[in-house]
């Protein structure tokens, strides 16, 4: 039994024809199922939880990264697999899992190649890709044995489960950020501010800071991130959304999610 959870963007006119093609392809492949829509009035977590309770074995997110992130916690600990039909922008998860765009994704769903992947767990919430803190005033304690503190200004500290790597990544770094290795990677990345950005800042049009390099990588199973300034909490961005504040404890949850992957997956 399949549940197709449509992102709110599916209602956009520009996706109308693509959706029709996707639905036809799913019918041809014999894997059509119930359709539910994520809107501002519905909670995708509850939709997924209810569907799994009713016997759904495959939950297919039709949309982008944010829809997928919002339903992860509902899939953990169940026998249901996550499938993806990428639609619209922000498709880094689909890229990592090797899912092609639009109706081509239906064939990957039909082939049903299943992999079990790790998740990160921050306090009591699961995440797929990363948790990040944009501050230098932090201390991280890794596996209870040692602490790491940034010593330079303007850096980002992140804990990754997996991450899309550019094509020019040196071979020495390609084994990092594997979602099936049972470990997370804590990274410290100084943020680069270009001359162009400084000029844009003068005119109030500053771009987001660009991460120009990874400085440090620590493989860890459990990490605590806390502020070094007393009584000050720092926002933690989880899977791209500001969600929690320091202090937080992050640990790996091995083999926690069942996903349908394509041949072009990056792990």
């Amino acid at each position: 039994m399949y549940l197709y959870l449509y992102d709110a963007l599916v209602g956009d006119k520009k996706h109308e024809k693509t959706i029709v093609r996707i639905e036809h392809r799913l019918t041809d492949l014999g894997i059509n199922g119930r359709i539910a829509r994520s809107t501002i009035l519905t909670n995708p977590k509850i939709i997924v939880r209810d569907a799994i309770r009713r016997g759904v074995k495959t939950v297919v997110a039709v949309g982008g990264d944010s829809l997928i992130h919002s339903i992860i916690t509902s899939l953990v600990g169940t026998d249901a697999a996550l499938g993806i039909i990428p639609l619209g922008d922000n498709q880094s998860l689909a890229n990592i899992l090797g899912i092609p765009k639009n109706e081509a994704a239906c064939d990957v769903l039909s082939a049903r190649k299943i992999e079990y992947i790790d998740l990160g767990k921050i306090n009591n919430t699961y995440f797929l890709t990363s948790a990040s803190v944009l501050s230098d005033a932090i201390k991280i304690t890794c596996d209870g044995n040692f602490t790491v503190q940034p010593v330079k200004k303007k850096s980002q500290t992140s804990v990754y489960n997996f991450r899309e790597m550019p094509d020019d990544t040196p071979p020495a770094y390609r084994h990092f950020f594997n979602p099936q290795d049972g470990i997370l990677e804590a990274t410290i990345e100084p943020l680069g501010f270009s001359l162009t950005n400084n000029i844009l800042k003068t005119f109030g049009k500053e771009r987001s800071p660009k991460i120009d390099r990874i400085d440090s990588i620590f493989p860890i199973k459990k990490v605590r991130i806390e502020s070094t300034e007393p009584d000050k909490s720092i926002p933690v961005i989880v899977d791209g959304q500001p969600m929690l504040e320091t202090p937080v404890t992050i640990e790996v949850a091995p083999q926690k999610l069942k996903v349908i992957v394509g041949k072009g997956r990056l792990f």
């Binding site: 040692f146 602490t147 790491v148 330079k152 020495a172 990874i214 400085d215 440090s216 620590f218 493989p219």
Partner: peptide
């Protein structure tokens, strides 16, 4: 190729 940990120039590790 099998580097597991990189302690960069912008961090201090204690412990």
């Amino acid at each position: 190729a099998d580097t597991e940990t990189i302690i960069g120039s912008t961090v201090k590790v204690e412990g």
